[in-house]
Design a protein around this nucleic acid. Structure first.
Lengths: 147, 147
DNA sequence: ATGTATTCACTAATATATGAGTGAGTTTTC
DNA sequence: GAAAACTCACTCATATATTAGTGAATACAT
């Protein structure tokens, strides 16, 4: 007669748990990004463009977990700020190529070391072993739920 | 001369990885919630109120990972929809007690089994062992980053 | 008691998320 | 080669997130 809830929810709220976990992680980076007037989403895009070179919005959305409507606003603002350059393909007028401005690459160059040291502080606190398990289990989760 | 990026970011983007992982999970619940015209945040609040009984906004925010400004809007909408009832404490006019409406409890009763079976489908796909590891590592992450 | 600090829910402004939809541009089909 | 199907970036409306700040109410120290 103890666990007889009218509405028995036996499983913990997993999305909530993941949200909170992520919040604790991102909280370590937020002040750093704020110092440089970058939002989390902007930095995600900058990172991806740094690593992959110029991309199309659709690809950026896929890589950064940003929906098309979100992306439209973020990219438009980044354009205004001079962080990215957008140009239409001549071969296909629908498509757009997004690339980082020189100014933004310079900015990234300044920020990257600080990002790296934040990761190292994080790793020091969590333990290297733990971090590896974390990345592994997240990768596997995504793999298993894909399709 | 291979990994000599101008801006060397040696660590993978962990917040992004966690975001994507969470997105894959919540995607399994979203259609169900949408069927009942509930947002993810509303359901989070309903769950917490089901399990803990009436709470104050501050407590709900803590338990549901919702900031005070977000909460103001969500609760106000839930109030209009007749999902929750808000009443001021007579002993402390600043504080508010939020409780579920009877109608909402009935709704939760209908939804809960479907939520549960979604969890079971998820667990079947991921494996029980895997799920336990997942919960464990997320709990530990939060614990280690707390404070 | 009375001024001060604190707590609490809330507002304001801006950025992003979600779900639906649009039109221009390209590919496919017949 | 024209219509149909499709792709792409984008808009619109609404909900939520983030950061800063406000006023009313309570607690606390003098």
């Amino acid at each position: 007669m103890s666990k007889t809830n009218a509405t028995s929810l036996n499983h913990r709220n997993l999305p909530l748990l993941m949200l909170k976990a992520r919040e604790h992680v991102i909280a370590r980076f937020r002040p750093l990004l704020a110092e440089h007037d970058l939002t989390e989403q902007q930095w995600r895009i900058i990172r991806v463009l740094l690593e992959s070179g110029p991309l199309e919005p659709r690809e950026i959305g896929e890589l950064c977990g940003l929906s098309s409507p979100s992306l439209a606003g973020v990219l438009s603002r980044m354009d205004e700020l001079g962080l990215v350059v957008r140009e239409r393909f001549s071969t296909d007028q629908r498509r757009v190529r997004v690339s980082l401005s020189a100014q933004c690459r310079a900015l990234a160059k300044r920020i990257s070391p600080q990002i790296e040291s934040t990761y190292e502080a994080l790793e020091a606190r969590l333990g290297k072993q733990f971090c590896e398990s974390l990345y592994m289990i997240l990768d596997e989760l995504i793999l298993k739920l894909k399709e």
